[in-house]
Write a protein that binds this DNA or RNA. Structure first.
Lengths: 164, 164
DNA sequence: TATTGTTATACTCTATAACTATA
DNA sequence: TATAGTTATAGAGTATAACAATA
């Protein structure tokens, strides 16, 4: 992206009524407009950027947040289980956990029953940190609400419910 | 992803009373469920994968499709203009165009008025190819409709209209 | 000086394959 | 033999910086 603004709010103004449609803006996205994938992709980029910015001070990205949340809610899970449930490659999860373990947020405990696998737990530090991350994530969620509207956000969640 | 199914439909247990915690399937995504970003991300992955699969025979990925579509609809556009309007880095567009030009779908023409910039055009071959890509993209769009429902797709497009 | 296209670098993420240690 | 975790590699994609030609 050249600028964050360009990427975040491509062209097109909706909320403010006035549409700045002057100079170089006379370009048609045409066929792209009817494509769900294009709209979803642009929206997803906006959401991720807001998430990254909102949780910037604590240096937590969306994927890291999802890993911490799932471990927090299901202590003792194996790496395979976490990877499967989040749709992350197990190879990739290794690096994610390396980083989270170095930051003392997560610990890998060798399983007694199956010594191939690791039981994943949050550290005490990880628990308190996650609580803070969740407050910031809720703030991010409010940004989404501000951007698309409370009811639209709820409809979106309803429409996409079985993808989570 | 380990398997497409695993990524697309993670697990998700709806109503669980006495959760038999041993089987790896009794995992809660919990806090993640209320997050628009998570749902959107999973949906976006599903959409992209279906797009890539549906246009697999012609070897066109979503980004390439969006570039071809915009050039087709606005012949003579500069690289900067295309990059800005699609929210792509101009540095990245260079490589995308290199590949599309090698495939004889696009040509770069030095501008007479501003010799720094290139006017982008589809080749004759690019025009007919794009027509085919559009038919396949429409097929992909029908897959989306089948997956989430005709009305939900329309609502989604309406909700996300000003992100395109 | 500023901008367009280009090259280069670094980091994230996806997709595989292969290795090891267990089972 | 199969699986869990690991390592490695290759390709997208994102984010920057810098350079040459041109404005």
């Amino acid at each position: 992206m050249t600028t964050t603004a360009a990427q975040t709010f491509p062209r097109k103004r909706g909320a403010n009524g006035a549409t700045p449609r002057n100079d170089a803006d006379e370009i048609g996205l045409d066929a792209l407009v009817g494509h769900a994938g294009y709209a979803v992709r642009r929206f997803q980029i906006w959401i991720f950027q807001d998430f990254v910015k909102t949780l910037g001070n604590v240096d937590i990205r969306p994927t890291q947040y999802s890993v911490l949340t799932v471990i927090g809610a299901n202590p003792g899970l194996s790496q395979m289980a976490v990877a499967k449930h989040l749709g992350i490659e197990r190879a990739r999860l290794v690096h994610l956990l390396d980083s989270l373990e170095q930051r003392r947020l997560v610990k890998r405990v060798r399983s007694k029953t199956d010594r191939r696998s690791h039981a994943l737990h949050l550290t005490a530090q990880g628990e308190t940190a996650l609580a803070k991350f969740k407050r910031l994530a809720a703030e991010h969620e409010r940004h989404v609400e501000d951007r698309i509207g409370k009811e639209n956000r709820e409809q979106l969640l309803r429409i996409l419910a079985d993808f989570t």
